[in-house]
Amino acid sequence: MFTTLAAGTDSESLAQVAPFLYLIFAAITILSAWMIVISQNIVRMAMYLLFTLGGVAGLYFLMSAEFLAAIQLIVYAGGTLILIVFGVMLTSKNPFIRLQTMLWERCVAIGLGLLLAMLMVIALANTPIKQTGTEAVAQNHDIHTLAITMLSKYLVPFEVAAVLLLVVMIGAAYMARRRA
């Protein structure tokens, strides 16, 4: 109805400030991810994880994937992480719980991390990255297109994910039932 009159996402101004904001969000993401690894207090880890997720959501916003960013905040930052915090607080006897890592655990973690980094570098090197204008990206990511695609072309994966969530929910309700 209003398509001819509406002002969309301001792609021109976004392109001007994008490199600067990209540096900020990337720095937040990497720094807080690093802090998760070196921190020992589990609730502080959860808070750093919040900043990591928020930084990734900011990167999504910069890529004009607004819906993805909002879902990232709602599902991961607002849902999953709060449940983790909730669980940690309710189950730990000592409120300032500390996590100590063994030497062999660190070795395994560093090895796995290096393998993953190698995989990502190889994948990046073999992917041709096409430079597209921000306008094309913005138009492809409006939520109407997304909804139509999700409910026509990708209907089966969508429904499978829904069934999976239903199974998880029934399982949780079964576990939490009152035992006679």
Binding site: E66, A70, I71, I74, A77, I82, M89, I143
Partner: peptide, 29 residues
């Protein structure tokens, strides 16, 4: 901002609002 997702953005920021309360309550010991 004329965001395409509009009021879904409010849900996204609103879901973060709980952290201040829960972390404040936790950190006070």
């Amino acid at each position: 901002a004329p965001l395409n997702i509009g009021i879904i953005f409010v849900l996204a920021t609103g879901s973060l609002a709980v952290y201040g309360v829960v972390l404040g309550g936790f950190a006070s010991n």
